[in-house]
């Protein structure tokens, strides 16, 4: 999936994360800031890359500000930002690439 425009999802409230996606320059460029970077930085990064992989996004600049979000919240925010960047809201592939 292409990132057609800049889109944002989430918040910087506790247990949430703020995800911004922008059209990339040929690769996945991740800028991650997390309140739990030392303990969970690697896991958060893994969840972000896996989610982008499922959505077939390979050309994106993605910025994530994490405030202790669970994996399920990180996935939800990344998916939301990507689909917003494509202006897709209905007939989403629940249980397919959103999983």
């Amino acid at each position: 999936m292409d990132i057609l425009k800049t889109a944002i999802a989430g918040t910087v409230e506790s247990s949430d994360c703020l995800v911004t996606v922008e059209p990339g320059s040929g690769t996945i460029e991740l800028d991650l800031d997390s309140s739990v970077m030392r303990q969970f930085g690697r896991q958060i990064r893994k969840v972000i890359f896996e989610t982008l992989g499922r959505l077939d996004v390979s050309n994106v600049k993605i910025t994530v500000v994490d405030k202790g979000a669970l994996d399920c919240t990180i996935k939800a925010r990344v998916e939301c930002a990507v689909y917003r960047a494509n202006e897709m809201k209905d007939n989403l592939p629940w249980g397919d690439v959103i999983v």
Partner: peptide, 15 residues
Amino acid sequence: KDAARYSLYHALQEI
């Protein structure tokens, strides 16, 4: 409204 759905789906699936 859209963001709430993604959160809902993953919460139902994973929590």
